[in-house]
Amino acid sequence: MPDPILAIAGLDAHYGDFQALYGLDLTVAPGEVIAIIGANGAGKTTLMRSISGLLRNQAEAIRYQGEPIGHLRADQIAARGIALVPEGRQLFPSLSVEENLIIGGQLGRRGPWSLEAIYALFPILEERRAVPSTALSGGQQQMVAIGRALMANPDLLLLDEISLGLAPVIIKTIYDALPGIVSSGMSAMLVEQDIGKALSMSQRVYCLQEGRVSLQGRSDQLSRAEIGRAYFGV
């Protein structure tokens, strides 16, 4: 197995007095897609926030491309090539669709993704490039959020609940685009409520329960019963 692009070891995370993650261990190999599943409150979003730097941690708890990054600010981590599609999309309402995409690429990292490439992936966005991002439908907003993260040409893409609140047909459109996105060698971490989707999109899966890893393994080898136990802790 090659050196992991992301190695998390003994990660604790706190919100004030409340501890959300307890000694979490996790790795992502280059080019690998892993899925994170777990019930509400299991710590999935906290994990995403910790990796992306929105929550500060102990430096050594998170190593990326061999270097400790747990202590860095979110903008420093972004500059190293980790991009997050945040839960709830969180586009910039004062920016147009195209501006939202451009600002995603403002660090100037090189790679396959450009405005043209995003527009080729989601043609509807080109049509609506000049409108304020708030004028889009939920599915289109999610496309902008994904495009905005891709514009950074990340080596590791974090996707937090990208299907939340979207119609099934939209979810399918977005997930159909995912294999093409990661085929360029990008690694990805996917937080997903839909366990079937999570397993089919990923090579490995981690299940979180109350801030700890309750199960991990190859997505094609875990049984539904095992996952059910790890998910609900029965």
Partner: peptide, 10 residues
Amino acid sequence: AIAQLMGLNR
């Protein structure tokens, strides 16, 4: 926070 994710140091 999201601007910070775009690499903008607040």
